[in-house]
Amino acid sequence: MPPIAAWRRLLAEFLGTASLVTAVVGSGIMATTLSPDDVGLQLLENSVATAFALGALILTFGPISGAHFNPVVSAADWFLGRRTRTGLTPAELGGYIAAQTAGAIAGSVLANLMFDLAPATFSSKDRSAAHLWLGEVVATAGLLMLIFALVRSGRAAVAPAAVGAYIGAAYWFTSSTSFANPAVTIGRAFTDTFAGIAPAAVPGFVIAQITGLFVGCGLLLALYPSAGTTADEVVVEHDTARTA
């Protein structure tokens, strides 16, 4: 049977990223409503909802597109797999990034509408600081190492739980609360709520995430020199999906 059509993969990336941002933004809005005077509890509620949602979304869309939902994951998939001709092609990479970014913006708009807010309002939450950028480098590099190490070691089946757990934990151990995703960062600029980021702070976060991409890929090549041979399986095994 033929491989999965490109439009289905792009639709999966759009819907998955949109759903992820809806979960991040929506749970942030709900957290501030339920716990208005406790920022720590708000972060706990936001991180738990995001972690569980991410795991579920990887299970839902992974068999179709690999459930990247993140330009740095897609870029690493292309970069690591380019020599062995596995993973995404340059054209597929461009499509994934466009679908993820559009999905992230749509996710913020949907969350805003669900909570009776203006569809899109630029965030006023400034997150411009060197220590936050460092947090994004750490969060992004760690995410990539986890994903590709799982695939290289034949444990891709546990990726939904492991990736969700990592992001949930990284909310707490990184100074930036672990955006670790350029598309999600852009999408979160369109909501002036708990999970928002001011548009002026977006470039700094994206540059830090790209830096994390290079750091993560460098560490992966040092620790798992043949990581690129399994790029086709990121994030969820594709052997059966590609013939569906």
Rank of each mutant, 00 (worst) to 15 (best):
M30W: 11
F214C: 07
L44I: 01
N181S: 12
Q209I: 10
S178H: 13
F148I: 04
V72L: 04
T140I: 02
V48I: 05
L80M: 08
A91W: 00
N46T: 11
V184E: 00
A76V: 13
S74A: 12
L44D: 11
S124H: 15
A99P: 14
L134R: 15
G154D: 13
G164T: 06
T121E: 08
A183S: 15
V151A: 12
T32D: 08
S153T: 15
A195T: 02
R152K: 09
S19T: 09
V202C: 10
M114A: 15
R242Q: 15
T193D: 13
A104N: 02
V73D: 11
D37Q: 08
L34N: 07
Y96S: 08
A23T: 01
A129C: 03
P3I: 02
A6N: 06
P36L: 03
A111T: 01
F173G: 11
S128G: 12
V25Q: 10
R155A: 08
P71R: 06
L88F: 12
P119N: 13
F79H: 03
F69M: 07
A198Q: 09
E233P: 03
D77S: 15
I186H: 05
I97A: 07
A180L: 06
T60C: 01
E45F: 01
C217Q: 06
A159S: 06
T17G: 11
A118F: 01
L221H: 10
L117Q: 15
T230F: 04
A222M: 14
D77T: 13
Y224V: 14
Q209E: 01
F115T: 09
T33L: 14
D37S: 04
A198E: 01
L110K: 03
Y96G: 06
S123V: 08
F190H: 02
D38I: 02
G40L: 09
A18T: 07
D116W: 10
I147H: 04
A231E: 00
N181V: 07
L220V: 00
